[in-house]
Design a protein around this nucleic acid. Structure first.
Length: 607
RNA sequence: UGCCCGAUGGUGUAACGGUAGCACAGCAGACUCUGGAUCUGUUUGUCCUGGUUCGAAUCCAGGUCGGGCAGCCA
């Protein structure tokens, strides 16, 4: 299905395609919210991957389909794990992925801006709304004056919310060590024991919490905890930690803080402060939802509260997705870096030549459910081919060259044959490709003793040279070791495209380049990184690494490829889709994004 | 073991009490100056057992299987 096939940007109500969109549509119809606001909240502790892309497509997709906004927010509440390197990379990847599709729904904020204290229904309130390119006044906000949201920008407000909770007797400072807290939490089937500090007075709690902030206590010595229910069957309701002490420098707030809110405390309130209506996350947060609601409901919040909904994260066969495993592949050198074309990272896929449109189409096709599925990479590969087939410029290149000499073709003669740039898109026009007496063809397009269903070149057989002549193989030249080093042919000189015998039917058509005109380029042939569908199912995933995931060859390319542009997609006819790699210098480097579907290889394997 | 969630062809999904559909993969054929693309046809499915109902993938009960949760990670 094409991307435009599900483009809901036009008139008419979008057709809800999954249970979350159903909910959003219902809330809008019932007036429970005026305008939908979602958010994409990555923690800046790693690079984004195809799994994040699913979430981005969902959150931004909902925003654009329902005329809302999706805030990009760094969920940066843990200074030990986060780095500016990731902050920048995430922003870049998100923008690349939604460009031309949902960039008008990208919720940002004026650089440096923090929540404002406002009054809502007579009550004090904190609010920080988004600015988008879709806004009427977007001209007032040149690119560099806007930035994503940071949960860390709300630390002051979060602190005040915590104080409010303390004043209401709903939170207390706990002096137990991490080990004690752990032990006292009990087990899923066994209630926990209350903290010895659970019944401290409000005054003492306020004092201690202020001193925690002031830096009087060492890391881990105290926490702020919610006072909920130590015997709750949901362990996340057993007085969860809201604040912990970390004398660490934060990438965004520097040394301003030495206490940091936990995910549970920060996330729901960040959603609230930003006016998020639908907070969509993955299944593992399902058990946190009661806590998400508890925090919001136990504070005096005058505006409508955000609601959390969960969906199943993406699992893709033949790949690994966890941050830890991706990190290991990078740091232990199994791949060249975070943008290695074999990685499922956004930048890896991008470098590989996968388009944002293909990723979006894939995300749309797999749908959104609560079922923990394993999606076949074949579905992703289909989306990639489907997109590239429509846009790629066709070119001729030979990966494993074999000399072919046309004995009845004059030496020194060069013809320019007309070649179609893209049969799927007539507007792409044609180009001229030099043809001469000595060519290179693909080694695999000639077989001395072929199986019966082989219909490329064989001794005595005929084959069409794409865009040029039909040739017959008369003679095979071998080296001392018996390897075929050259095939000698005669051409049917009237069979050139448009010629008198051009209509003759020959079974096979092969690609070629003119030896004297071709130039050499490095081609990096990528394949799946793993050899098994579930590399991380059990044990060491490293042992399932595909030793042939990268193969480097020197290809012979048609001259027009000299002008290859970065970001342009090419189909080397009969071989696959390629893009120019950033490593290109005086010698060009092409990455193979993906092969063409090859039913011959499958058939040959069977036979 | 306690709580929460889920289960529809090989895979991913739709059907919201009324003919089980779509996509991927597979297979077969047509077409093709890419063994690509395109087109056509096609194999395969409601976890189990009861119940409600004229009628159940859908509602109810019990079971089975799978996933998640006991970080001062997110």
């Amino acid at each position: 299905m094409s991307v435009s096939g599900h483009d809901n940007s036009g008139a008419g109500a979008p057709r809800p395609a999954d249970f979350i969109r159903d909910i959003v549509a219902g809330d809008l119809a019932a007036g429970r919210c005026k305008r939908v606001r979602t958010r994409f909240p990555p923690e800046p502790n790693g690079y984004l991957h195809i799994g994040h892309a699913k979430s981005i497509c969902l959150n931004f997709g909902i925003a654009r389909e329902f005329g809302g906004v999706c805030n990009l927010r760094y969920d940066d509440t843990n200074p030990m794990k986060e780095e500016p390197e990731f902050v920048d990379a995430i922003y870049e990847d998100v923008r690349w992925l939604i460009a031309g599709w949902a960039d008008h729904c990208l919720g940002l904020k004026p650089r440096g801006k923090k929540p404002e204290t406002i009054v809502t229904d007579g009550k004090p309130d904190f609010y920080l709304g988004p600015v988008t390119k879709g806004d009427a006044h977007c001209d007032a906000w040149p690119d560099d004056t806007l930035e994503p949201f940071y949960a860390s920008d709300y630390f002051e407000q979060l602190y005040q919310y915590a104080v409010q909770l303390i004043k209401k007797g709903k939170a207390y400072v706990c002096d137990h060590t991490p080990e004690e807290v752990d032990k006292m939490r009990g087990a899923p089937d066994r209630p926990g024991k209350p903290s010895l500090y659970r019944d401290r007075s409000v005054e003492e709690n306020l004092d201690l919490f202020a001193r925690m902030r002031a830096g009087e206590f060492p890391d881990g010595s105290r926490t702020l905890r919610a006072k909920i229910d130590m015997s709750s069957p949901n362990v996340w309701l057993r007085d969860p930690v809201l604040y912990r002490i970390r004398h660490a420098e934060h990438h965004h707030t520097g040394k301003e803080w030495c206490i940091y809110p936990t995910y549970d405390f920060a996330h729901c309130l960040s959603d609230y402060i930003e006016g998020v209506t639908h907070s969509i996350c993955t299944l593992e947060f399902e058990v946190h939802r009661p806590l998400y609601d508890w925090i919001l409901e136990n504070l005096e919040l005058p505006r409508p509260l955000p609601r959390q909904y969960e969906f199943a994260r993406l699992n893709l066969s033949y790949t690994v997705m966890s941050k830890r495993k991706l990190m290991q592949l990078v740091t232990e050198g199994y791949v060249s870096g975070w943008d290695d074309p074999r990685l499922p990272t956004i930048r890896g896929l991008r470098r590989r030549g996968v388009t944002a449109e293909a990723i979006r189409a894939f995300a749309y096709n797999i749908g959104i459910t609560k079922y923990n599925a394993l999606t076949d990479v074949a579905a992703f590969e289909h989306a990639i081919r489907d997109d590239l087939n429509k846009r790629a410029l066709r070119r001729l290149a030979v990966l494993q060259p074999l000399r072919l000499v046309i004995t009845n073709y004059p030496e020194g003669k060069t013809e320019l044959v007309e070649a179609v740039n893209n049969p799927e898109d007539p507007a792409a026009g044609t180009r001229r490709v030099p043809f001469s007496r000595v060519l290179y063809i693909e080694r695999s397009d000639f077989m001395e003793n072929p199986p019966p269903n082989y219909f490329r070149l064989r001794p005595g057989g005929e084959v069409r040279l794409k865009y040029a002549y039909i040739v017959r193989c008369d003679e095979v030249v071998k080296d001392a070791a018996g390897n075929v080093v050259e095939v000698r042919c005669t051409a049917d000189l009237g069979s050139k495209t448009g010629g008198p015998t051009a209509a003759r039917k020959v079974k096979g058509t092969i690609h070629w380049v003119s030896a004297e005109h071709a130039f050499e380029a490095e081609c990096r042939l990528y394949d799946r990184l793993f050899t098994v569908p579930e590399p991380d199912a059990e044990g060491d995933f490293i042992k399932y690494l595909n030793p042939n995931s990268l193969q480097v060859v020197t290809a012979k390319c048609e001259p027009s490829l000299m002008d290859a542009k970065f970001g342009e997609h090419y189909q080397f006819e009969r071989l696959g889709y390629f893009v120019l790699d950033k490593d290109s210098g005086s010698k060009l480097v092409f990455n193979r994004t993906i092969t063409l579907k090859d039913s011959w290889a499958k058939q040959a394997q069977k036979g």
